[in-house]
Design a protein around this nucleic acid. Structure first.
Lengths: 300, 300
DNA sequence: GTCACATATGAAACGTATTTTCAATGCCGG
DNA sequence: CCGGCATTGAAAATACGTTTCATATGTGAC
């Protein structure tokens, strides 16, 4: 084709400005081309789902006309117009910001529950990261990396976090124990001495069964760490280092335990990664070995 | 899971979650398919500009492989993948992708570790929420809400998630047990019958010790649910409902267990809230009562 | 090792969507 | 009413996407 009078104008086929371009060029279009352009401008998403033939039928024209319209709009052919259309559709799809502010209600459809929970947990993570004192964290990491042994206290939901931390520390070759039995925790705490580390995890900061072993450890000279949502709670009086978790808004269907757990896990992960960095020479092979050991326990 | 082994997962080919889907499905891909998937995930915009043949050449594979990959990602063919790609490209063009892309390094300062971990976990949550099949989730919720008893199987890190779920279900008055001892799990699974629910949690989808009890439960007529990162894993053959967790990029200092746990917990939370909604009349007072029971165990 | 089997892969055949060509039609000025 | 030009769609030509199938590449058993 030796390009004749009516040809592409403007260089980039920027998808955003498509509606404007349609309006600008409409006067220079023939009747059938206008029908096509109109359809495209009115429902980009719908048209993106159609083939040339489909769009031709929809607008009561022919394939040739559709292609001609695409050309006039600045694309090499219909295929490219269609791609631009898909992009445009995606953009205005995402433009609708969800902004989930409401609490979870009893009659929320399941999809909303998923969206709200995910959003809340993301929020909790951001808050926790922002509020975490990296100096305290660094100190806790240093102590843990050098510790002879590490005891972790946690009860209820926090007990699972304690176990999570312990599992990970064990994997990099450290000696760590999680205690959720208050009596055993205390009897073990007595064994601790300077150079050892004791970590108490409690959202409320006032869980007696967790504070008690930390106090014992503290008095025996161990380095003590508290991971708590209440930096002014009773637990902190026996803690050398306090790591604060964030407290997200809770509701009847979303107990505090849920977001505090997310927050605690982030702190625990940071602690773990910090320790793994400091002890990299032993941690890396230990991690590899534990991975290897599990490999043959998989089916198929 | 009625349909075949290798099949599309999730319903909508939502463009946003494409990178996540690539990561989730990467393990079940062949080498050449992985090359294609990688190219697509790394440069959606660039790939959207290519024809099948072009993409095949770019990745050093054949057209057939490209189409196969598109199918695996949940699209009817390459044409539709390409449209989705164009949409994705347009989105991140306008959205200005922030993305902390670097892995955690051995010498990262602790503040960076916190930021990167928080970011990654947020990403994992978003991906999981996007990829979660709400129909399957709804079905699992319905089954669990009406169950006579609920058994949950999980080992290692997944064991903690299993316990987390169990703890919460117990709080709303349901009968739930977590098993991480494979033998006890199986002997308990034998007791299950129609109307009961068994839930297996395994990131790899191939943990024999978790699959076995689920198989037994399945064969005894219980409704079975699998929470796994591998929708094509061995575990799904005995699962009535499959809930897919997302697989985040992992590295030496950030083992898969970390993000899979985040993902699993979100799924488990959704399950819990869903069940709590359905059983609100009994769940609400039960929650209040358990809260009350703990109140006097706090100091000061 | 090597044999049998399964899986992965690309070349080429095939079908469909897009583009081009071209003849028919309508419109306008003389 | 006629010639010339713009518009249009049917159908041919082509580019693209999909499917098939034979070959290659492992992988586990013996």
């Amino acid at each position: 084709m030796t390009n004749d009078v009516k040809e592409t104008f403007g260089r980039a086929p920027a998808p955003a400005a498509l509606a404007a371009k349609v309006r600008t060029l409409a006067p220079s279009m023939t009747r059938s081309m206008q029908r096509v352009a109109e359809a495209v401008a009115n429902d980009p998403a719908g048209c993106a789902a159609l083939t040339v033939t489909g769009l031709a039928e929809l607008t009561g024209t022919s394939e040739a006309t559709v292609v001609r319209t695409a050309r006039l709009l600045g694309y090499p052919g219909y295929r490219d117009l269609r791609l631009a259309l898909a992009g445009l559709a995606a953009q205005q799809e995402s433009g609708r910001a969800p902004a989930i502010t409401t609490d979870i209600a009893v009659d929320d459809p399941i999809a909303d529950v998923v969206a709200k929970l995910a959003y809340d947990e993301q929020q909790t993570l951001a808050d926790t990261a922002a509020g975490l004192d990296t100096v305290q964290l660094g100190a806790a990491v240093t102590a843990a990396a050098a510790a002879r042994r590490i005891d972790v206290y946690g009860i209820g939901a926090s007990g699972l976090v304690a176990q999570d931390l312990t599992q990970k520390l064990l994997r990099i070759g450290l000696i760590a124990h999680a205690h959720s039995d208050p009596h055993l925790a205390v009897t073990n705490a007595v064994q601790l001495r300077a150079g050892d580390v004791a970590i108490a995890i409690t959202h409320s900061g006032s869980t007696g069964d967790v504070i008690e072993p930390l106090r014992v450890a503290f008095e025996h000279g161990a380095t003590t760490v508290a991971i708590t949502g209440r930096p002014d709670g009773a637990v902190t009086q026996y803690a050398d280092h306090v790591l604060t978790t964030s407290t997200a808004r809770e509701s009847e269907l979303r107990p505090a335990a849920m977001s505090s757990r997310t927050s605690q896990l982030l702190v625990v992960d940071c602690l773990f990664v910090g320790v793994a960095q400091r002890t990299y020479d032993t941690a890396a092979p230990a991690l590899a070995a534990s991975y290897e050991a599990l490999a043959h326990r998989h089916r198929r």
